[in-house]
Design a protein around this nucleic acid. Structure first.
Lengths: 262, 262
DNA sequence: GACGTGAACT
DNA sequence: AGTTCACGTC
């Protein structure tokens, strides 16, 4: 028996909006710890990891570990039927092949329940080791989204270079080149507007903008984004989910001297 | 060496928005006087003339006359990467085949530079003689845009007729006809809402609405528009650019008794 | 919330 | 190249 009651239902709506374009089908894993997901995108290039800790739910009952395979497009379609102020409760019986989403309007005047078929998805759950990163950049998520969107109008890949002073985003394409430099800035009135750089060593890595622009769909989940970079490691683009956990996107850097990217 | 610093960068963004649909490629001409452009639209029917005087720039350095051929679509794409409050600096080395747009955010925390390839464009620079016009109408630019948009839903051409009392915009199409009369009105609280007519002789001319509706893309540049009319002369639709210059569109009247227009 | 525009896909 | 979808703007 599984029953998870999330008062701020809009969180789950936003989570699905942020991953449904990247991942078609995925297993949601429930345990006493929380509600989580780990999945490769449909082209098997990037990886998404979501965690919503049990403490973040108003009510969290998970008798035994459960892995529920869902089509994220269909799940998103159902969640779109929930109001932004609705309380969402997710229910599943043990050994059931369906999951039920219940939506309660803030006023309790409208109560909906949507039942969705589960599916069998074979997924290797990768252990992601904690790593030391050469540089970690924290910046306003909207700014990061804007930069990735702008650069994508010029080129296909972005080079992210971090120095103590700032972070540089560069691209090149047929019509020209672009460099955007963001200065480290911790002295801003509002902490969510700060750009903070923790750097152990200089790092400069190249990524496909197509994926970065998918990741930034998670912007509504958090005012800030954290980008963790190391040579030879996938970049981690993390959006913290207040009081509950995070959504993290992993993407391997491009090898610089490849003849032709994809 | 060329270096033009424009504090109100949104002006340049708006200028490009207003001409990029009309003209594909054009030469920007820089001289000590200012930054200008003159180009036929891609169908070689209408003409655009832009002037941004050097005095309007915070910093204006132009060592020698320079003509820079740009693809306006690509230039617009790059300018879209500038914030509306950004300071835009345009740089080019002599004999360089590129131009650089630098964008500085108001806070100086974000500095971008975009380099664009220049192109060779052969353009005959027409001398446009100052002319006496039979009638000059000044009116709110938004009103003019609305009229052209509305009339285009009925017909393909507009007849603009000016009398001392007012200006009439007429069209006819399959579904019917339309006439919009604007009375001269100088007694309005705000001068930008006035409709002012200077008339030497009655004039009534026909124009393709398709082009008029392209011209009105410049509406964000000025609250008022000036329409100068004479038989046998192209109409001039002018939007003044505060403190800096103007953008003018020229379009030849249709000959009335042609069998079929274009 | 609706429209118009630009980008992606077929 | 045409259609569809998503985004930004009004």
């Amino acid at each position: 028996m599984l029953e998870l009651r999330l008062v701020q239902g809009s969180l789950l709506k936003k989570v699905l909006e942020s991953i449904k374009d990247l991942v078609n089908d995925a297993n949601f894993d429930c345990s006493a710890t929380g509600f989580s997901l780990q999945a490769m995108d449909s082209s098997h290039v990037s990886l998404v990891a979501l965690l919503l800790r049990s403490e973040g739910f108003e009510h969290y009952r998970c008798d035994r570990k459960l892995s529920m395979g869902m089509n994220l497009g269909n799940m998103s379609r159902m969640l779109k039927c929930a109001g932004n102020d609705d309380i969402i409760t997710l229910k599943a019986d043990d050994d059931s092949d369906t999951v039920t989403f219940m939506f309660e309007s803030a006023t309790q005047d409208k109560i909906s329940d949507f039942e969705m078929k589960l599916m069998d998805i074979d997924s290797e759950h990768l252990g992601i080791p904690d790593a030391e990163y050469q540089a970690i950049v924290r910046m306003p998520s909207a700014e990061f989204a804007r930069i990735c969107k702008d650069l994508a109008t010029i080129g296909d890949t972005v080079v992210i270079s971090v120095t103590k002073e700032g972070v540089k985003f560069s691209t090149a394409g047929d019509i020209g080149t672009a460099n955007i430099v963001l200065r480290q800035n911790t002295t801003v009135d509002k902490p969510e507007e700060a750009t903070i750089i923790e750097m152990n060593s200089l790092v400069s890595l190249t990524f496909a903008l197509r994926f970065m622009n998918s990741f930034t769909k998670a912007t509504p989940l958090s005012n800030t984004v954290t980008i963790s970079l190391s040579s030879e490691l996938p970049v981690v683009v993390e959006y913290k989910i207040a009081e509950m956990g995070y959504i993290r996107f992993y993407l391997a850097p491009k090898v610089e001297d490849e003849m032709e990217g994809d």
